[in-house]
């Protein structure tokens, strides 16, 4: 499944503004500045997104030349997560609590002691875990301004919109019935667009049929 082969599932966007004249330099700069970076296991970040190659997830040196399929740009948004699984954390916390209780010769630990143990154990486990990596292709037609993101996950789409704006300084407008209707290429008249702003849902069934159907 993806831009290069197989079936395609994606969310479609349109770049709101026209690209500036020297957009190539801006895109190159944005790709470099927002390239995917590994999460620091010593920190507390659990999730990070950035650009990587559409062909190889570990290649984060994305150049304009490497992703240009004129007039398309093809790159990927990489999602890296480093989270200690809750079950694993619970087991190691319990082991540590037992050890501390033995050392302090205490029957029970206070809430603060347990919180401190949890923090320490989580930090230690993070250093032993490998992050999870996934990437999602982005295909940008720089002539038409259409961007296709090969994921329909709501959260990921929100992260893409944010990353896109931060990287390239342009806003993405997602496809909805309203935004499609507003596209100049669709060619609706001013009168039709005015009617669109006032349109209300209409039932595709008359009240008599609905009443009969509900009676069974």
């Amino acid at each position: 499944m993806g831009a290069f082969q197989g079936g395609l599932t994606y969310r479609q966007y349109r770049v709101k503004e026209r690209l500036p004249q020297h957009w190539q330099a801006r895109v190159q700069q944005g790709l470099a500045a927002h390239a995917a970076k590994p999460i620091d296991p010593d920190g507390d970040e659990e999730r990070a997104v950035g650009w990587c190659s559409a062909q190889f997830i570990l290649d984060t040196h994305v150049t304009l030349e490497s992703c240009l399929y004129d007039p398309y740009l093809v790159m990927a948004m990489r999602l890296e997560t480093l989270t200690v699984p809750p079950g694993l954390l619970k087991m190691h916390c319990e082991a540590e609590e037992r050890k501390v209780k033995r050392e302090l010769k205490k029957e029970a630990l206070s809430r603060y002691e347990r919180a401190e143990i949890r923090e320490r154990v989580e930090a230690a486990l993070r250093k032993r875990l490998l992050p999870s990596l996934r990437s999602f292709e982005v295909v940008w037609n720089t002539e038409s301004g259409v961007v296709r993101f090969l994921s329909t996950n709501k959260g990921l789409n929100e992260e893409l919109m944010e990353l896109f704006e931060e990287s390239f300084g342009v806003v993405l407008i997602p496809d909805y019935a309203y935004t499609i209707a507003q596209e100049p290429a669709l060619g609706l008249s001013d009168e039709q667009l005015a009617a669109l702003d006032a349109v209300e849902p209409t039932p595709f069934i008359d009240s008599e049929t609905l009443y009969e159907s509900m009676k069974g």
């Binding site: 290069f4 994606y10 399929y69």
Partner: peptide, 22 residues
């Protein structure tokens, strides 16, 4: 939202990978 998904395209005839993409 109004959108297409799970798209199966017609058969692609190009041989070269770049031409296939286009």
């Amino acid at each position: 939202p109004l959108m297409v998904s799970a798209v199966r395209l017609p058969e692609v005839l190009a041989d070269d990978p770049k031409a296939q993409f286009h």
